[in-house]
Amino acid sequence: MNKEHFSEDEWKAIGQAIARLRASVMAVTFGIVGGLMLFVATTWLLILGPTGDSEHVGPTLGLLANFFPGYSVSWSGAVVGLFYGALSGAVSGFVLAFVYNLIVVFRKR
């Protein structure tokens, strides 16, 4: 392939394509990242143990229990957090891709 292979119109078209997002791939990716993030964040606090004057481990992260019933900063809570993180990540990834694709289609029209 060299320069002579391109017409003027083709030349203008290079790099102008707009990517679409695959909702399934986004859901899986965000799900894995979300689940692992919450799992690692919880276990990291457990490994560090109580800090400062507090007797509790991870009091702030523990507030996530308001949104994720059953979650706590404990070893069992880390597994529950893995599940919730994965679930909320997957939903976020899916919605993000879905809305993105809708806007792209709308703007193309």
Partner: peptide, 22 residues
């Protein structure tokens, strides 16, 4: 065509769409 293959491989994100979605 080679152009289409290039465009597939190097497709850009629509900033308005990604901004809107996020």
């Amino acid at each position: 065509s080679p152009i289409e293959i290039l465009n597939d491989a190097f497709a850009k994100y629509d900033p308005v769409a990604l901004g809107g979605a996020l």
